[in-house]
Design a protein around this nucleic acid. Structure first.
Length: 478
RNA sequence: GUCCCCAUCGUCUAGUCCGGCCUAGGACAUCGCCCUUUCAAGGCGGUAACAUGGGUUCGAAUCCCAUUGGGGACGCCA
């Protein structure tokens, strides 16, 4: 039975890189019919917060990455680690180190300045007596000769000279255990079979392998995923724009689109670009994960999001856009009585309006923004559009359209089109000449869905009002 | 500085393991054309890559070595 885990440290929100690691673990578990465990690595008490734990889980829930076990928290398990440390100490596999952080830092700087590797020199290994007045940390005794080989599923065998590895701290002087130690204790106890994590952990792996050995356990299989980088090929960070997963929610991205994008970042399946979740689960395999780092490309994500928006039904899309409409104050919150009443009366109409915009929108935010001329009573006309399309030359068209529409029986797409065609014929001109001024009049700008759809959705009353206002702007006097 | 990893269009990648099917395929972006009621969407087409140098071989994007470039690690962070 395959068992994998996602083990974030709650020192920040769930970011793009973390989400990709979580996704690959989740996909592998789902593909193999295994178990996906969530474990919170919060041994660093000074930097871990409850808020970030909540935030990370919120991000995973939004992405629909459900876990089967956990969340386990390492701070709940300190007694387990403590007994392992004591055991190592008793067996001579670890020792007390009385060097202070300040001393270590000083030596590190000195070594770096002199061009030497900044490794711990093992000086406390031979200490027989405690150093008075100091509380020691605990270091693990690494072998000093030989080689350690990591058999990575993605990279193949990677070997390290043990002489390169130093005795690392497994318990701080305050008694709390550190990452390289607890990660192994937990993976053993949680029976993790495959450790899938970022590339940045590859160098830690030989250290961890020796902990497994000292604990008397087999190592799990390792798979180190290539990193995600920004456009300048440096590690992805805030400088590259939004990195937190929830920021993408706020920008109007669909979780499935982000998932699809992230899946293709480092993994491929022939020429296929778009995958449903089921396809992803069915086709995911470790063999098709690439080895080289990938640049995060927001433009391709935006394209994918547009694809997903167009695949979403108007009903669902309307529900998804609602929060953005409420936030913009275009729609009253349906939690309130009046908002609720409005929505029940206008749901179909709202869906039609949303549907008209899906083809030309790539985010929910774009849809919500474009909804303004449907939902507001009046529109503000863009000055440039006004100058170009609301003037003495177009006044006749506007007047004819107003005249034609005021007597129209059915205010529908087809009926509207007929009126426009008559006016076009009468003036022996092109539809664009008539449509564009009307578009400016009713939407305030030069860009919108098809004009007949727009008019039908806006309705006769508001259309006529806006046309009249536009005629005044064009110089019409009563 | 030391160690580790990586290297195909601007970007994500197919092809690499099992050399010939590759005059290197797809996607995003970009450019042009078509469609057209504006903007999109859609259709068609274009520009654009095997980092460099050595080998091995009848033959190398594919195998080997070196160089260069990029990334990562070297914490009482994870």
């Amino acid at each position: 039975m395959v068992r994998v885990r996602f083990a974030p440290s709650p020192t920040g929100h769930l970011h793009i890189g973390g989400a990709r690691t979580a996704l690959f673990n989740w996909l592998f578990a789902r593909h193999e019919g295994g178990v996906f465990v969530l474990r919170i690595e919060d041994t660093d008490r000074t930097r871990s917060t409850e808020e970030y734990i909540e935030s990370i889980m919120e991000g995973m829930k939004w992405l629909n990455l459900d876990w089967d076990e956990g969340p386990f928290r390492q701070t709940d398990r300190f007694d387990v680690y403590k007994s392992c440390v004591d055991k190592f100490l008793a067996e001579g596999k670890a020792y007390h180190c009385y060097c202070t952080p300040e001393e270590l830092e000083e030596r590190r700087q000195k070594a770096l300045a002199e061009g030497r590797p900044p490794r711990y020199d093992g000086r406390c290994r031979l200490l027989k007596e405690p150093v008075p007045g100091r509380t020691p940390s605990v270091r693990f005794k690494m072998p000093q000769t030989g080689q350690t080989v990591v058999n990575d599923l993605i990279r193949g065998p990677v070997s390290f000279d043990n002489s390169q590895l130093d005795d690392f701290i497994i318990a701080r002087s305050d008694g709390t255990p550190t990452y390289n130690f607890v990660v192994v204790v937990d993976d053993v106890e949680m029976k993790i079979t495959h450790v899938i994590r970022g590339d940045d952990h590859l160098n830690n792996t030989p250290k961890q392998i020796h902990i497994y050995t000292s604990l008397g356990y087999e190592t799990p299989k390792f798979a180190h995923l290539p990193m995600i980088m920004g456009h300048d090929k440096t590690r992805l960070s805030k400088r590259h724009g939004a990195t937190s997963v929830m920021a993408y929610k706020e920008m109007g991205y669909l979780p499935d689109a982000l998932i699809n994008y992230l899946a293709r970042l480092g993994w491929s399946c022939g020429d296929q670009e778009i995958f449903t979740r089921e396809e992803l689960k069915a086709r995911f395999s470790m063999e098709h994960i690439g080895k080289s780092a990938a640049v995060f490309n927001p433009e391709k994500l935006l394209w994918l999001n547009g694809e997903y928006i167009r695949k979403t039904s108007p009903e669902e899309l309307t529900d998804l856009v609602m929060p953005f409409l409420i936030a913009k104050g275009l729609v009253k919150d349906p939690e309130t009585p009046e908002g609720s009443a409005w929505l029940t009366n206008n749901k179909q109409w709202l869906r039609k309006a949303v549907a008209s915009l899906t083809e030309r929108s790539k985010t929910l935010v774009q849809i919500a923004g474009a909804m303004e001329f449907y939902l507001l009573d009046t529109v503000e006309v863009d000055p440039q559009a006004r100058e170009k399309f609301l003037n003495s030359e177009t006044l006749n068209y506007l007047a004819d359209v107003r005249g034609g529409l005021s007597g129209l029986q059915e205010f529908t797409h087809d009926a509207l089109e007929k009126v426009f065609q008559e006016i076009v014929a009468k003036h022996d001109t092109k539809l664009a000449k008539v449509a564009q001024p009307v578009r400016v009049a009713v939407t305030g700008g030069t860009v919108s869905p098809g004009i007949f759809d727009v008019l039908e959705i806006i309705g006769r009353e508001r259309t006529l009002k806006r046309l009249e206002k536009a005629m005044k702007l064009a110089g019409y006097e009563l």
